[in-house]
Design a binder for these strands. Structure first.
Lengths: 240, 240
DNA sequence: TCCGAAATTTCTGTCGACAAATAAAATACA
DNA sequence: TGTATTTTATTTGTCGACAGAAATTTCGGA
């Protein structure tokens, strides 16, 4: 019973606040999808979700539409909507876009940032370092995402930040598949690379920031690729 | 009465087809927003739209959520949802992203295309040329968009195609403001540049394709900028 | 026992209605 | 006459219900 997720009580158990219903459902489901608490392919029954969140089907439906636009779920017309599969066939597209966004956002951050941005990056980097020290693979994946999003925000281009968010979330979903095979080597290197990136951005050295971002992206891409090729059950994940 | 758009009859007046209601509303509204038939800031009354499309509020609402996620409309909580303003303050973000997508998609097309792709590009380019010959500014804007989207599709990266679609639609919206001030010079040049781009892509000359895409983007950006600076009523469009 | 058609069930898409929240109008007061 | 407050009206957010489509089950025939 993969869909038997724990009941979610409305936060505070007080005023559920008019209009917040669908937003709440959206956030919860989104996190569950990204964290793979809801497996790709698992059905999203509206009636079941309505019961779980103690809401009518209408706000549930609104949340599902939002998720659908973002590509996190797929709706079969007149049939069940399911959690979107991770598309292992188009991974190269994904890697290409991810690398480009790493580079572009880092470049922009190097050019556009203000002191507050650097402070925020350092804070996120500290969280990331803590996750590495604690050998908490899940927190590591999440904080790494947040760190790079902070750079994107500092870059100040919303079009890039939005696409990058999507890509990093998808990345988080993929990495989540392999979190058990994490070793200690790579994360250590990531900590160092992150520090270098912050330094280059703070120094407004665009070319150096770009170089570091490229190398960092390369690391992550090859890491994922090695996980995938090492996975003997790869055929189990290929959507047919 | 800017919102008094012509009544839309269900296509064919036959079977409205279950499940197509909201999709239809979405498409129609999307086009009207992009074509500026619905002016930025104009309210999207659900009841009014329901009456206009002869539907209940539910499918209307679903379409509005879709548009909202794409940023085409803005929803004030518990209040009217309005057509999003064109953000003249963040134009540089827009130009930056547009230029990058022009370049990246053209590069990918030069590397990934197959013969069918070239044929499709030529077809779109022919439509564009016809619009230029007919001095039809509106068709010119639309067919230019379609031409470049065809290149993006040939490139084969859905992440880029999606972002590029958004950017080109936003561009179409901006250009629509200035269609009356179009002269004959620039479109002629665009026809030539488009032909050169097709040739470079067909020859799989990635660097040349990139160079042409950059130049093309530069043209368009400076064109828009000159329109904006020449517009004395610029303050009327600044969202306050 | 196995296969195909009919019946049933399940779930989505749509509808009309009600309640909360905001905006607009009306009223009271200085 | 101008401003603050109450009242009304409009509009969104949510709900329960119904009808159509698919999937599932049941039933009949070979």
């Amino acid at each position: 019973m993969a869909r038997d997720t724990t009941q979610v009580k409305a936060e505070g158990t007080e005023t559920p606040k008019r209009g917040s219903g669908s937003a709440h459902v959206y956030k919860v489901l989104r996190n569950e999808i990204i964290d793979l608490a809801l497996a790709p392919g698992s059905p999203m029954d509206e009636l079941q979700l309505a019961e779980r969140f103690s809401l009518s089907r209408t706000p549930i439906r609104e949340a599902l539409v939002r998720l659908s636009v973002e590509g996190l779920i797929t709706t079969l017309p007149n049939r069940a909507t399911i959690v979107s599969n991770i598309d292992f066939l188009n991974l190269s597209q994904f890697f290409d876009a991810l690398t480009l966004m790493y580079r572009v956002t880092t470049r922009l951050a190097a050019g556009h940032h203000n002191p507050d941005d650097i402070a925020r990056m350092r804070a996120k980097q500290e969280e990331f370092t803590r996750a590495v020290d604690a050998r908490d693979a899940l927190a590591l994946i999440a904080t790494n995402r947040d760190f790079h999003l902070e750079i994107a925000r500092a870059g100040g281009n919303n079009y890039y930040t939005e696409l990058f968010t999507r890509l990093l979330d998808e990345n988080r979903r993929i990495l989540r598949l392999y979190y058990s095979s994490f070793n200690d080597e790579l994360p250590r290197r990531y900590v160092i690379e992150h520090d270098q990136m912050i330094a280059a951005i703070a120094a407004r050295d665009i070319e150096e920031a770009d170089r570091l971002a490229s190398a960092h992206a390369e690391q992550i891409v090859t890491q994922i690729q090695s996980y995938i090729t090492a996975d003997k059950r790869v055929n189990a994940k290929l959507p047919l």
